[in-house]
């Protein structure tokens, strides 16, 4: 099973490399929205606005990116997957792949924010650790919901309205913690919140493991 998961992850990476323009499109999306924030919020940037804008830009980019990962699969490659691996293997592999994908987008957004909106982060390493937790949590929920949205047809608003309310608990906890990374971070104080974030990711991973089989059965 672990072998198969690894193969799914590898397959997704090589497909990604073949369609390089799609990750470039997501990165460009981040660039344009960040530049928009830079233009509109010119001179208004405090730690609080920096933090709030970061999570809003990231969450919309993440929804776009994750949905794209299933969009092309729904009809064509799916039959092939179904005959080769169990759906649980597919969803775990996709989640791992999306974790790395979202982490790359998160780090890119972070660097862009440092460059354009100002380097006001007191503890960048704490922020990056939070970003890893965020990528894990987002990947668990977004992989599952985008699989569902891809099955539900081509309603363009569907991925966002299905997944963003489910991300509220994480985003709320993340933004309240990451503001401390901007002003001054204490690992011992924030450890419980990080545990909660990890737990949320595990709960959603378990749910997608249990429910994904029903999703793909046609």
């Amino acid at each position: 099973m672990f072998q198969q998961i690894l193969q799914i992850v590898k397959l997704n990476f090589s497909l990604e490399w073949r369609h390089r323009q799609s990750i470039l499109a997501v990165l460009l999306y981040v660039l344009t929205t960040t530049y928009l924030s830079y233009l509109v919020f010119n001179g208004l940037i405090s730690s609080e606005t920096w933090n709030a804008l970061y999570w809003i830009v990231l969450i919309f980019a993440a929804v776009q990116a994750a949905f794209r990962s299933f969009q092309n699969e729904a009809d064509r490659r799916f039959l092939l997957y179904f005959s080769l691996v169990r759906p649980q293997v597919l969803v775990i592999g996709k989640t791992i792949y999306n974790f790395f994908y979202l982490l790359v987008i998160g780090l890119f957004t972070f660097l862009l924010f440092l460059f354009l909106l100002g380097n006001i982060v007191a503890d960048p390493w704490a922020f990056i650790v939070l970003l890893i937790l965020a990528s894990a949590g987002f990947a668990c929920i977004l992989t599952f919901v985008s699989g569902l949205a891809a099955k539900a047809g081509d309603n363009p608003a569907l991925p966002a309205i299905l997944s963003i309310p489910l991300l509220y608990p994480q985003v709320l906890a993340l933004s309240r913690t990451s503001i401390r990374a901007l002003t001054g971070f204490s690992w011992s104080v924030n450890a419980p919140v990080m545990m909660v974030l990890l737990l949320l990711a595990l709960v959603s991973l378990l749910l997608s493991y249990l429910l994904f089989a029903y999703l793909w059965r046609d």
């Binding site: 929920i141 599952f144 919901v145 569902l148 099955k151 539900a152 047809g153 309603n155 608003a157 569907l158 309205i161 299905l162 309310p165 489910l166 608990p169 709960v203 959603s204 749910l207 997608s208 429910l211 029903y214 999703l215 059965r217 046609d218």
Partner: peptide, 29 residues
């Protein structure tokens, strides 16, 4: 969102299955 999901799928079997899956996932969250 659950109602919108139901509204955007035509096939009744598929609609019921997707809606049930989302209902369980969303309820836990």
């Amino acid at each position: 969102a659950y109602f919108v999901l139901r509204g955007s799928v035509e096939d009744p079997q598929k609609k019921a299955r997707l809606a049930a899956v989302y209902n369980i996932f969303a309820f836990v969250m």
